[in-house]
Amino acid sequence: MSSRMKNIIVPVLAVLLGIIVGTIIMLVTGYDAGAAFIALWDGAFGDIYYTGETIRQITPYILAGLAVGFAFKTGLFNIGVEGQLLVGWLAAVWVGVAFELPKVIHLPLAVLAAAVAGALWAFIPGLLKAKFRVHEVIVTIMMNYVALHVVNHVIRTVLSNKSDRTADIYASASLRSPFLEGLTDYSRLHWGIIVALICVIIMWFILEKTSRGYELKAVGFNQHASEYAGMNVKSNIILSMVISGAFAGLAGAMEGLGTFGYQSISGGFTGVGFDGIAVALLGGNTPIGIVLAAILFGSLKVGALNMPLEAGVPNELVDIIIALIVFFVAASYMIRIFIDRIGKKGAK
């Protein structure tokens, strides 16, 4: 079997296995699995309103997936998407509430601010990795928590008067669209999905059509060979983190300028950044794969909210399924061996 074929079969099998184990869990705990999956489907696509909400959820997932996937391509593991997303969200809202400008200037400025903030937040682990060979996984995890506390502090002291949320952004910075809302029975669907899809094309273009992208991938495959070939490994590592952080920051802008229109302090993370790891992994770190994986996880997450209402099944079941999918993709060594065995038997 060709390796291309395997790259498609492994994630599909992982999803199936995840759903099968999820079903077993429901059977063991005595929940009605059939009703749960129908409720899941209805909750994601059963109504035009739900479809709008699903697409809204897919938007940050695509961007978070791109962020993780882009760094993966250079051999870097960016667990810091969560933190970069928060600072991006903060920057976007900050620009959104600070001044009123014509929309053509204000909106792009707010979106850009988020990308820059996310990029700067990711620049630090990139720099430390390149200059001091510090493992990016640990630094990005630590930066997540620094981001959480700093963002909460800024919201409480700078962007509000000891309140737990910022003011609403000016309409001129908003991604909201009465047109899309009207189309989807007043869901919170906003123009962010366009931004996300543009970013998908940008990632594909950088990686496939520019020599810089070729270098980034080469560094991911083999740092020593890349250095021998005359590439600057250090600057490629930093660049990869910066671009990855920019995608993550944009994911924050989608929440700040689109879904919510403000930012509130929080005790924990949004979860979008960690789910982005799942998205990138399942999507094989390719732009199109990431879009498909984001659609799957976005639908699961939004559909899950309907499960307790319609089938009485806790929505956390979907979190279990997503975790299992990540697990099965990570342990794909097992699946690959299994496919090889079957392939050999077929050849006899």
Partner: peptide, 8 residues
């Protein structure tokens, strides 16, 4: 990745 899966 496995650690992330454990957390989720």
């Amino acid at each position: 990745v496995s650690g992330v899966a454990i957390n989720l």
